[in-house]
């Protein structure tokens, strides 16, 4: 456990809460990409599939469940509760263009060819790209909602913390291996957020 990692986790959580709070307070999903949220639901489902077979810590288990719960709530809010305000026309990015390459990459580029490892790799690749429909929507509507921008900033800060945490751990711990998949995807992800 590392202070950067914990800070990253909480900033990530804060971002998700900000978005869900915006949805419920304004009762509108204007400016929010339902497709990005759908991708994040897929990301967390794939990554947290190991909840069923592995126990790391109470902190880990609780946050994984909270992340899943918030993301599913957000998806339900967009596609069910406030679907009348969902801007289907503008949120037009074809997500299969993101999902399919990630699935192919996960099958060939993973730590071990096991279900959990492939799921994990898939979740890391897809997380790097999941924000793309949101960025596409913001660029199309030409007006950036400040709450959505705070959400995007939180997610960018979270990934930044994680990448720094990995690099720091690698530098200071002789027996740690640099996880190339995670670091490379993390850097790609950061590029999208700085955009």
């Amino acid at each position: 456990m590392d202070i950067l990692q914990i800070f990253g986790d909480y900033v990530h959580l804060l971002g998700m809460i900000i978005l869900l709070a915006k949805l419920w307070l304004t009762k509108s999903c204007a400016g929010i990409s339902g497709k990005t949220q759908l991708l994040f639901a897929l990301v967390f489902t794939a990554r947290n599939a190991d909840l069923t077979i592995r126990y790391v810590s109470l902190y880990n288990t609780i946050l994984k469940i909270v992340y899943l719960a918030i993301t599913y709530c957000t998806v339900l809010s967009i596609f069910l509760f406030f679907r009348k305000t969902y801007d289907r026309k503008r949120d037009a990015f074809r997500i299969e263009l993101l999902i399919l390459p990630c699935a192919v990459f996960a099958l060939f580029l993973n730590k071990a060819f096991e279900t959990i490892e492939v799921f994990w790799a898939f979740s890391v690749y897809l997380e790097a790209l999941a924000i793309v429909p949101q960025v596409y929507l913001v660029s199309k509507s030409k007006q950036a909602d400040s709450v959505v921008m705070s959400y995007i900033s939180c997610l960018g800060l979270y990934r930044g913390c994680y990448v720094l945490h990995w690099l720091y751990a690698y530098k200071h711990s002789p027996n740690s291996q640099l996880e190339h998949i995670a670091v490379a995807s993390g850097v790609v992800q950061l590029i999208f957020y700085f955009d």
Partner: peptide
């Protein structure tokens, strides 16, 4: 010094 396992992270 503990090594970092990214699989144990969120």
């Amino acid at each position: 010094n503990e090594s970092v396992d990214v699989h144990d992270e969120l």
